[in-house]
Design a protein around this nucleic acid. Structure first.
Length: 414
RNA sequence: GUGGAUGUAGCUCAGUUGGUUAGAGCACCAGGUUGUGGCCCUGGGGGUCGGGGGUUCAAGUCCCCUCAUUCACCCCA
């Protein structure tokens, strides 16, 4: 196929068995969120670029991983790279600060980032996420994390191990940041090229480095810099999660890439994804809504979950093939079969039927590939008694019955 | 953005030291007599060998470029 007609890099066509599976996952996600009190919020898939720019100037995903365009009216627009900023914008714009607090929202849909594609890294991927606005309490962090865990379990994954950390607040983080910088500057010559530049751009991300791990391991731990409030918040959060039956582990090197986080950050990986690709991740971002012209103090906490990644670690056992019914005709009764097929569809049955006027033999061959019940219309039984033959392809059993008995019979089958 | 691997039918792949009209399996379609599938047999459709350029009498095969896929890094779901 001509290259210019192929699908864009890093995107995918989702075909039949997988597409219905994705739909299933979407339903599970939204149902679970509903059970926790979260309302579905649908925002546009593009926003004015400023929405994302304000929210994370130093992150790669807004710096050079954006799909940005100018529309004919001259407005600068960006395909959303993540959900959090868009939800925050909607929260502010719709005056949700005036609703009963806390406000619980979830979202589901495609996200776009112009990254170099890789295993489980796409330029368009589907994300499910939830955001809780209006509470600074650790119960809020806990609820969001529990929802994320409950969601992946409802989808059929084993209980996840949550990696957790707190990156402090405006009171304590500056001091930590300073000592981290001091520490790394004293080892500057030993650092890899990436870390040297991180030193300038985003010092916290130094802890993410997989090369200079020996230097990293001796770096100061933020835990020792937490202010009293942050320490208490973290301790209460852990206690709540553990009391709820979740296993958590503190990861002192967990600092997430979006730079709007405050205090809590968390992530869960999956063994088969090699610890690098997280299934879901999130944290608290108390200053985000304010950045988007929201009220002075609008605490919030949330997570995002990569649906393609979930799908990839799910076993295929839940793939139950649909029960379908094939209406076949004996040559000469094409129209009668066609009308019967339409009638059965209106009765709610999933029907396949031949549209090529093929021989009965060819129809049965076709039916055996896509159906498990065949209804044969035509011939003497049809002409004389309006009877049809119903054949179970798997059992290789068939019986003849008046057409008016068909609907009750099929209903009793399923 | 950096580095490695790979690009032949819808899919999985053969294709010998460059040498006639490029193959197989699976899938798809049709037949194997009159109204019945899965097995078997026969036949058929489908490829500008990713694209462009070069070397050569001759390129799927050698060289260069490019595009794409894939893996790792970066970052992230």
């Amino acid at each position: 196929m001509r290259q210019e007609l192929q699908r864009p890099r890093g995107t995918q066509d989702i075909l039949a068995p997988i597409s219905s599976r994705m739909e299933q996952l979407r339903r599970i996600a939204i149902d679970t969120a509903t059970r926790y009190g979260y309302d579905l919020l649908e925002t546009p898939i593009f926003e004015q670029s400023a929405v994302f720019l304000r929210v994370g100037e130093s992150t790669d995903i807004v710096q050079h991983e954006r799909y940005t365009f100018t529309d004919v009216g001259g407005v600068d627009l960006t395909l959303r790279p993540e959900g959090t900023a868009a939800v925050a914008r909607a929260y502010v714009e719709n005056g949700m600060a005036n609703k009963p607090q806390p406000v619980r929202l979830c979202y589901y849909g495609p996200m776009f980032r112009r990254e170099k594609p890789e295993a489980l890294r796409y330029r368009q991927h589907t994300q499910f996420g939830a955001e809780l606005y209006g509470s600074t309490q650790p119960e809020a962090d806990a609820e969001v994390i529990l929802l994320a865990c409950a969601t992946v379990e409802a989808m059929g994954l084993p209980a996840p191990l949550v990696r957790l950390n707190s990156i402090g607040c405006s009171v304590c983080r500056p001091q930590y940041r300073a000592s981290l910088l001091e520490y790394y500057h004293s080892h500057e010559e030993e650092l890899c090229a990436d870390c040297q530049s991180r030193l300038e751009t985003n010092p916290l991300r130094l802890l993410d480095c997989k090369v200079d791990i020996d230097i990293r391991d001796r770096a100061p731990d933020i835990k020792d810099y937490w202010c009293a409030d942050c320490a208490a918040h973290y301790a209460e959060l852990v206690a709540l999660l553990e009391a709820s039956g979740r296993t958590v582990v503190r990861d002192p090197f967990l600092v997430r890439g979006l730079d709007y986080y405050t205090r809590t950050v968390f992530e869960i990986a999956h063994p088969s994804l090699g610890n690098r690709a997280a299934l879901f991740g999130g944290g608290r971002y108390d200053g985000l809504a304010t950045t988007l012209d929201g009220p002075e103090t609008t605490p919030a906490v949330g997570f995002g979950m990569g649906m393609e990644r979930i799908l990839s670690v799910l076993e295929d056992k839940n793939l139950t093939p649909e029960r379908r019914i094939y209406v076949a005709h004996i040559p000469g009764s094409e129209a009668d079969a066609f009308v019967l097929a339409e009638h059965l569809r209106q009765e709610g049955f999933p029907i396949d039927t031949d549209l090529l006027r093929r021989s009965l033999k060819a129809q049965l061959r076709d039916a055996s590939k896509r159906s498990n019940i065949v209804i044969i219309v035509g011939g003497d039984e049809w002409a004389q008694f309006k009877q049809v033959t119903v054949k179970d392809l798997a059992q290789n059993e068939q019986r003849t019955m008046p057409v008016e008995d068909l609907v009750p019979y099929l209903q009793q089958l399923s």
